[in-house]
Design a protein around this nucleic acid. Structure first.
Lengths: 150, 150
DNA sequence: GGCGCTTCGATGCAGGTGCATTGTTGGCCT
DNA sequence: AGGCCAACAATGCACCTGCATCGAAGCGCC
């Protein structure tokens, strides 16, 4: 049961909140766009692949359901992502020994290479979007605030 | 011509930058997801429609090329968006008097009503994502930082 | 063992998005 | 006026995403 005050705040959040919200969405979108643009300009795979490659590289051979949780993406989405990536030769999958429902995903050499190849483009976007515009202290503050949001 | 130092920073930005970046993308995605979920739960139109409706409501009858700029979305995307919204009866379009290439988009009553109907769902998402987690000062700080990014 | 429930991952279908390109009109210059 | 380039909006095509659902395998219980 919500109090009247809570309801009021729900319906009409202070202007600053809406402003922050709007900028959050905008900044997130712009940032995403910036990476995609860089990646595409360099003829590299799409953004999502990077996250998967990095995660598998860090964690070692992984099961899709775990990747899904770690990456925070939808199950069907990951499923098709892995299909494409396997077709491109960046990962290998095998049925999970000990649980025939599941799979184990592992990086191929090409996958490792692709991840490395993608980093410069990724870094360019980060540089242009964040590093160039905020100083160290501001980046720390931003990271702290965003951690509480997400 | 880039200095070696700049290149180095491009290739290997400090960890805090990458962290902030990662959280920016994540927070943006989560926020977007939250609204979409609320809207869909309430059987309301998709997120993008809200922005268009709001913009046209604020600015008055507008031309697509302006909306495109104000909203920061792609031309083809807006074109199809407007097609769908018109089919749903939320906006009317007419050819622009004085420039037969262009159009004028205006809200219908249904459009105004839809915008209002969407707000509570939108507000719920804002409340849960931002308002509940950051206090006033933090929201101000966040808005300030994000303004510099986007 | 057999039954029902849950977990894991794949997939059919409808719809949205990105990219390139087109058609139309306006504006400008000669 | 005529020719040329730029601006505006639409669209064909391939691809991606969301949703619901499915089938297969594990798990617990009797």
């Amino acid at each position: 049961m919500r109090t009247a005050a809570t309801l009021l705040r729900m319906i009409k959040p202070a202007a600053i909140t809406v402003l922050a919200w709007d900028r959050l969405l905008t900044a997130g979108r712009e940032a995403t766009r910036a990476v995609r643009r860089e990646l595409r300009r360099a003829g590299l795979p799409p953004l999502e692949w990077y996250d998967v490659l990095l995660e598998v590289e860090r964690r070692g051979p992984s099961r899709p359901r775990d990747l899904q949780r770690w990456l925070g993406i939808e199950q069907y989405n990951l499923s098709r992502l892995l299909t494409r990536m396997e077709r491109a030769g960046l990962v290998h999958t095998m049925t999970c020994p000990g649980d025939a429902r599941g799979q184990i995903v592992q990086l191929s050499d090409a996958g490792r290479a692709a991840r490395q190849a993608m980093w410069p483009a990724y870094a360019t976007a980060i540089h242009g979007t964040l590093e160039q515009r905020l100083d160290d202290a501001e980046r720390i503050a931003l990271a702290g605030l965003l951690a509480r949001v997400a």
